[in-house]
Structure formats: C-alpha cells, structure tokens
Design a protein around this nucleic acid. Structure first.
Lengths: 193, 193
DNA sequence: TCAGTATATGCTGGGTCAATATACATTTGT
DNA sequence: ACAAATGTATATTGACCCAGCATATACTGA
C-alpha cells in the first residue's frame, strides 16, 4: 500500500500534520493493520501537495518547529476513493519471532523459552493498545468490523501462545539441548537482524 | 528480517537454488510468516558467497539456464544461529483489504460486499496452501508449533469474516449508498495501489 | 540535568516489482 | 496436425520506494 494512499486515508478522518499521521498508524485505529514511517510520510505529503490532492497551512507555534497541517481536497477524496477500487493485495503477516522459533531445535533451550515469553508479553501489549484506541464515539459498521477483526486475530495469537507454551517447553526438555553458542564466533553483521 | 538471514534459514533445510528458495517462501513452510522477492534473494546469495557462508556449484542443465545450487557452510550455520540471538521485531500484519474496508461507508455497497467475498476466498486459498505444505515427515516440536500457530490465526480470520459478513451487509443496507463513482475522474496513478 | 514529547527533514542501505532472457513443456486454436 | 500461446524453471538487473536512523529545535516534567 502506497504511502500517498495511506496519508490520504488518514486525512479522510480530518486534517493532520505529518507527525500526527504517523501517530495514527503507530497507535491509532490503523495500527493493527498497516504502518508507514516518517521517511515516507513526509515525501508523500509533498507529492500530494504537487498533485493538489491535499492543501497545507502552516501553524506557527512558539518555539517548536512550525506545524504543517494538511487537509484533503475534494479532488483528493475522489482520487483516493477511486484508487481503493483496485483489487488489493492479500494480507501479509511478518513474524521474525516465528521464523526464529522455527529453528528452536538449534538454539539453547533457555533462549527459546525466553523468546516465547517475550512474544507473549508483546502480544499482550499490542492487544491492550488496540482496546485502548477504541473511540468512545460510535463507530460506523465498517470500522467496527475492522476493529473487531484485529482483536479476534490478535487474541487468537495470544491464546495460542499461552496454551502451547507448556507443550513446547515440555517437548524441548525431552530433546538434547544444543551446545551453548560459542562466544566470539563470527557474528552476523549489525545490519543483519 | 534481512534477506541474507532468510536465505541462510532456507538453506538450513538443505541446498537450494535461488529459484527454489523463493518457492520456499512463496508456498513452503515459511510462507505464512515471511516473504522475500527474487530481487533481494539473488544479491543476498552473492554477498553470502563473498562472506563464505554459502558455497555454490553450478548444475548444468540441458537448455535451461544453469542452476546454481547453494549450500550453507559450517561458518554460515554458526553465523546464522548467532544472528538469531538478537531480539526480534514484533509481528507485523499488513492488510490492504481491511484498510479499504474501513472506508466502506464511502464506497458503493456492492463493491464492499464483493471485497469481503474476495477476502474470504483469499483466506480459504491461503489456509488450503498451508495445510497442503504440511510435510508428511514428522516435524520437530518447534516447527509444529509454528505451523499450528499459522493455522490458528488464519482460521480465526476466516471464521471472523464468514461470521460477520452478514452483519456488515445488513448494516450497510440500512445506510445510504454513496453515489456510484463517476467515471473518468482523476484516478490515482498506477503506482498508487 | 536528563529524559520525554512534539515537530520536520535528509540520507543510506536495502527492498519490491516488473522487465528481460532462455528453453523446454503443455495447452489451445484453427 | 501444426502453429501459436501460455506456463514452468531459472537468473539478472534497474527503477523506484520505503524503513530506519541521525539530526535539529525547544518545551515540559522528573
């Protein structure tokens, strides 16, 4: 999903600065289903300005850098909704945790357990955040649909982890513990995580 | 997750060509949890060759381009497992479908329904594929854990969609149908989907 | 004084996607 | 039955996009 589209989507809910758009994707209603970074939001907004799909007015603030508040134009709305008509890509899920876990039989047992535990608290936090960002205002049907989809999926994940953590630790304790990794081995370079 | 790491992970299961590695992420056991494209696999393999974490031998084939079969070296294994020790990023889920759906009250009703239906068959296919790629050989505990995690999550998603499709269509039919989009509006440029 | 919040920008490395090339295998059209 | 089109297996590359980080400023609270 293109950064420009995502920005337009955010602006459909009202005017916002680049910073605020980021927050919408970080904590807001979009957070469970997509993400964009500053590095693409700001260039996207500039391009949208050129295309006249957004307007911008600078709000002077004392001390802090000027806040540039963007609003979507009627043309922008039309283009956005028109763009949504194209067939979307299927959902994609990326899980470094599971990737690592799938090599768990080559890793020290303790590490695997720790990883699962980190994984669990990770999901707990995520779910709390989703619940937390629930509007007090009544959401339109579609928004509720999306919101609850997220909750259902994330809670299943958490449930699964909690339920099967025991299985995993038990089965691992039956297997041979792989040697603790030797220190000062040639490590994978910093960029490689 | 770095392309080099992903390639090493694939090669942990045995030697493979770039093409075959891609297939592992497209259909294979990794498919529910991560992805890499050709455009990053091939450069990654070349770099891994430099670093001597993989070796390559060219398998001549009649007619077709040579197949370069890569194998992981002991150094590569060590580096890979060592790299896994770093704390992984939290899971990320990307759903263009849900993003679009969340603007459903601005879209023609028929489009929304069609979208949900496409979404459903999408998940059906995905789940079938996951089940399909189940090895007949007995998986180690960790691999089963990951495999079943994927199934649990994907099936919850599908269930949710099936169960709430009706709610959605019902509620939408009560609301005003937004005007059918006017043809030849300025469309969002090709790159924008 | 140190950390956190609010705000914007630019760079770099790495990533996706689509085009390109080759050659066999299979299906479809007439 | 033969030609044409599509599909599979394989590798490469270039254009554009994006995430992540560093950087800059200045307030607020600990």
């Amino acid at each position: 999903m293109d950064a420009r589209t995502l920005c337009l989507g955010a602006l459909m809910h009202g005017e916002a600065s680049g910073y605020e758009i980021r927050k919408l994707f970080e904590d807001g209603p979009f957070s469970p289903i997509c993400d964009v970074s500053y590095g693409s939001i700001y260039p996207a907004l500039t391009r949208l300005l050129d295309e006249e799909w957004v307007t911008c007015c600078v709000a002077k603030q004392d001390g802090r850098p000027d806040k540039k508040v963007y609003s979507i134009t009627p043309g922008g709305r039309a283009a956005f909704l028109n763009g949504l008509a194209s067939t979307p890509a299927p959902d994609k899920m990326q899980s470094e945790m599971l990737f690592i876990l799938s090599f768990g039989d080559h890793l020290p047992r303790a590490d695997v357990i720790k990883l699962v535990d980190r994984y669990i608290s990770n999901y707990e936090a995520r779910i709390a955040a989703i619940h937390n960002c629930a509007d007090d205002t009544v959401l339109p049907a579609v928004r509720r649909f999306v919101h609850n989809f997220g909750i259902a999926v994330y809670e299943t994940a958490l449930d699964y982890l909690r339920t099967h953590r025991a299985d995993l630790t038990e089965e691992l304790s039956l297997a041979r513990d792989p040697a603790t990794p030797i220190k000062n081995r040639p490590a994978v370079s910093a960029g490689m995580q």
